[in-house]
Design a protein around this nucleic acid. Structure first.
Lengths: 352, 352
DNA sequence: AGCGCTCGCGGTAACGTTCCCATGCGTGGA
DNA sequence: TCCACGCATGGGAACGTTACCGCGAGCGCT
């Protein structure tokens, strides 16, 4: 049974005294390292258990310069994608015996700066950051080993980063759309200021050019990365004159769900009249009706790889690698199959 | 401009030297405390800015016994409800200048114990825990100020806790159901082992008894707190003979969404044939079709209050309070209104 | 048998901070 | 004019840990 003093947490000195050795010996025994008699080690370990000793990581950190803590600064932990990233990072860190300090920046550069300062003061060994601003000059604001997550990381060639492979994801999506007979999907994209938008668009263009198709014919609508943004974008799309079935590739699941609402608002049916493909893989897509077919980003894997990259950075193995994690297709019900079901419907579909 | 040494982070001694004072004076100046000439203080502050000094919280923690960090152990940060709790806790902690160490236990008591040990070693000032097991004996495993979250906290009278007010939530739900003409809803509850289930059921009974109704007539199905659990429970419910419209009150939104799927699987329509009321307020409910009417738990508020309670605990203001946060109704589209549309249907409704 | 090496252990310094106490100077009152 | 008090500052210890160095004993090799 553990004797727990009411007043003070036991230190290694308490352990040493109880074991009848010096604190150096006790430390060595507990570190499991070299030059210790098995008998002495056992005595120390027993004493440690008896007094309920638990190594003080603050003191260890002070002495070694390693706190065993990592920072994670993401836009919002309550956002399902970022929660997945956090979960992956947390699991990977825990497996390496590290802890994770989590902060949400709410897409606010000032909050981000505050949190980074807090992390530096806490002497975290390094930080994983999704930079909220697409452009900021002063990389000194980090002042510790860092790994970036997301597309905006591209702007900082000196910092290694982990993100999803947007190019692969877009190709996956377009191929799937084509396999279902949707040759020229409309695009619902994010704000022009965001780097991810350019990446998405570039991938679409490449894919079309490779197939000798003209990407110029594609309708494009921009919006905020929100349900409302997608809803409005879809409204504008539906207001345009068109022939036949309408297929939409949204750059974000929230927008896709918003688009789905707009379709319903307009008295149309998804997937009968409009097909919608999302991008993210958030859980809500599963419960929508129809289920949202989407390209899922591997949020958890991204978090894990970011931690691994951060360890590399901390150990001064500066691979400075830019890692793009592959995405995968989540096929649910929001895409009509124009290719097989009813060829005659292709002509007649979407009479509106 | 900040001079940042390649090698070493500046300490208070660097600041003191640059300002031409002793480290005691520098510390006093930076602490903003007593007995310092304005001129000296200014010189120190300038020197600190010049060398880019940032107080080492590890050292502060060692010296003061306060690390400025709090622990949060929840089942799964990737679960939307817990992510909300984490967000609230994080914001409240940040407002008090504290950082949050987040861990996911995955409903595994062993993982929970490991994380608590890690938190103790990190010398967090306290921890917020959702105890995964409904019963565990050894409260010593905490060994630091603690606040519990959730129903299972009820078993530990010595530890203050924060949770949602299940009684109020159930009444709110039942009142709303009755106002829509659903007098005897079927219940989809969690596993019998969970304390929350008993709380829920007790609240239902009280509510019925107060109205001189017999709670014995209510159909009850149990299941895991998952989509699949809800789906199966609903399947069993639909297999029972019944007359008229079926109303269901699920103890959890995931189960409610699963139930909605089962309704669709059976070729029925929600809310035309079956009304479903959920409990949690997860975002996915908004995107389901129809939108899930539900009782929303104030996850964020719970996280905030838990941190406040933890501060009380740390400051030895042992209020030992049991706080129940009120829930609110989120009205969407999954409930049929039998009271106005077709009064004659009420007679036939919910006889089962 | 003697020398040297290895091994087990103890002592001490150092990490960066804050707090307590001492010191010295200036000022006001008797 | 002298003493006492207050205030700004400096010096040192302590928080708990680990790394380094040194010492003594034992053992093996020449």
């Amino acid at each position: 049974m553990v004797e727990r003093s009411r007043s003070r947490r036991p230190t290694i000195i308490d352990v040493a005294e109880r074991a009848g050795v010096s604190k150096s010996t006790a430390a060595r025994a507990l570190a499991g390292s070299s030059n210790i008699t098995d008998e002495t080690r056992e005595r120390v370990v027993k004493a440690a258990a008896a007094v309920g000793y638990e190594r003080n990581h603050l003191a260890v950190g002070m002495r070694s310069g390693r706190s065993g803590m990592l920072g994670l600064v993401i836009p919002d932990i309550a956002n399902p994608f970022w929660a997945e990233v956090a979960r992956g990072a947390q699991d990977r860190a825990a497996r390496a015996g590290a802890s994770l300090l989590v902060f949400s920046s709410d897409w606010d550069p000032e909050a981000e700066a505050t949190h980074l300062r807090t992390l530096r003061r806490a002497r975290v060994d390094g930080a994983i950051v999704n930079p909220v601003s697409d452009s900021f000059d002063d990389l000194d604001r980090f002042g510790m080993p860092c790994v970036f997550i997301g597309s905006s990381a591209e702007r900082y060639p000196d910092i290694s980063s982990v993100g999803s492979d947007i190019t692969q994801a877009v190709r996956l999506g377009l191929d799937h759309l084509m396999s279902k007979g949707h040759v020229a999907p409309a695009l619902i994209l994010g704000p022009k200021s965001r780097l991810a938008r350019a990446r998405f668009l570039r991938a679409v263009h490449e894919h079309f050019v490779e197939r000798d198709l003209d990407p110029g014919v594609l309708a494009v609508e921009d919006g905020e990365y929100t349900v409302e943004g997608g809803r409005e974008a879809m409204r504008r799309l539906l207001a345009q004159p068109r022939v036949g079935h309408l297929a939409v590739f949204a750059a974000n699941d929230m927008m896709a769900l918003g688009a789905m609402m707009a379709v319903r608002d307009a008295g149309l049916d998804c997937p009968r009249d409009v097909s919608i493909l999302g991008f993210d893989g958030i859980p809500s897509g599963e419960f929508a009706w129809p289920g949202l077919t989407t390209i899922a980003k591997p949020g958890r894997d991204i978090g894990e790889r970011a931690v691994e990259g951060l360890f590399d950075e901390i150990e001064h193995r500066p691979e400075h690698r830019r890692i793009y994690m592959p995405c995968r297709l989540l096929e649910r019900g929001s895409l009509a199959d124009l290719s097989v079901a009813a060829p005659q419907r292709i002509a007649g579909a979407g009479r509106n």
